[in-house]
C-alpha cells in the first residue's frame, strides 16, 4: 500500500497528495498525521490537493476528520490547491467540507496558518467577524 509522505517545514506539516489514493491509503494518512502532529508539536497542517483530479465523499470525509483531529491537537488545517472541476463536482455531490479552511495555493495556505496563529496569540478576545475564507456555506 502507498503511503503519503508528510514533510515538516518550520511549524507546519505539509502533505502533498500526489497519487490516486485508495481508501486504505487515505485512512493511513489520517492516522499518520495525528501521530506527526503530536510528535512534532506543529501548529499548522497544509494539505495540498493540486494533483488530485477527483475528491469523492470518502476523501472529503477524510479531510474533514483530519481538520477536526488537528483542531483537538491544537493545530490548524488548511486544504490548498483544489481544482475548479473538483470544486464544482463537490458542490453538485452535496459535500460542503464543513469546518475546513481552504486556500488557493500553498503560499496562501501558509499565510492563513500564520495569520491564524497570530490571531490566537495576540488577539484572543477579538470576536469580530472572521474574514478568512472557510468552506462552510
Amino acid at each position: 500500500m502507498d503511503r503519503v509522505p508528510i514533510l515538516k517545514i518550520g511549524d507546519i506539516l505539509l502533505v502533498s497528495i500526489q497519487v490516486d489514493m485508495s481508501d486504505q491509503t487515505a485512512v493511513a494518512l489520517q492516522e499518520d498525521l495525528a501521530e506527526r502532529i503530536v510528535a512534532t508539536g506543529c501548529h499548522g497542517v497544509i494539505i495540498d490537493i493540486t494533483a488530485l483530479d477527483i475528491v469523492d465523499s470518502f476523501v472529503g470525509r477524510m479531510l474533514s476528520t483530519i481538520a477536526s483531529i488537528s483542531r483537538v491537537l491544537d493545530a490548524e488545517t488548511v486544504v490548498v490547491g483544489m481544482r475548479p472541476a473538483v470544486a464544482i463536482t463537490l458542490v453538485e455531490l452535496g459535500l460542503s467540507l464543513n469546518g475546513i479552511r481552504t486556500a488557493l495555493n500553498v503560499e496562501r495556505g501558509m499565510e492563513l496558518v500564520a495569520a491564524g496563529r497570530g490571531y490566537d496569540d495576540y488577539d484572543e478576545f477579538d470576536d469580530g467577524p472572521d474574514p478568512a475564507p472557510t468552506a462552510s456555506p
Partner: peptide, 17 residues
C-alpha cells in the same frame, strides 16, 4: 469536458465503493 469527466469519475468512485 473536464468538468464532466470529473463528475462521472467521482460518481463511479462512489458507486464502486
Amino acid at each position: 469536458s473536464l468538468v464532466d469527466q470529473t463528475k462521472v469519475v467521482t460518481a463511479a468512485s462512489e458507486l464502486a465503493r
